[in-house]
Amino acid sequence: MQWNFEVDANTLVVRLAGEFDLGAADKIRRELDDALDSSEARHIIFNLSSVTYIDSTGLGVMLGRYKRISQYGGKMALVNPQPQVKRILELSGLLSIITEYSDETEALAKID
């Protein structure tokens, strides 16, 4: 799986591509926590448009970061999950606590 992070004002934008499972979870978790530690970011936007697969391990990484930022009033948003990924997000209940947007621009405009 590939990923990159970018801090835009107070928001960490995380772009993921490929299969989000146990294979990448530990590394992404560490890098996300490092990025949150070393920036002023309060919110996180996960751009999932290029994620082709997710399971409970990938969801767990997202939920763990949600718990962390929500302690300090931060919000999390998702951008454009593919249908098979969206179905897993819905079943997990994550979509009931995290808002979904169709693109990064809209997510960035509305998250704060």
Binding site: R29, D55, S56, T57, L59, G60, V61, L63, G64, I88, L91, S92
Partner: peptide
């Protein structure tokens, strides 16, 4: 047993 995981593994297998 792990706070980072959601306990959803068995739920997905069953569903």
């Amino acid at each position: 047993t792990d706070p980072e995981r959601m306990g959803l593994g068995f739920v997905f297998m069953q569903s």
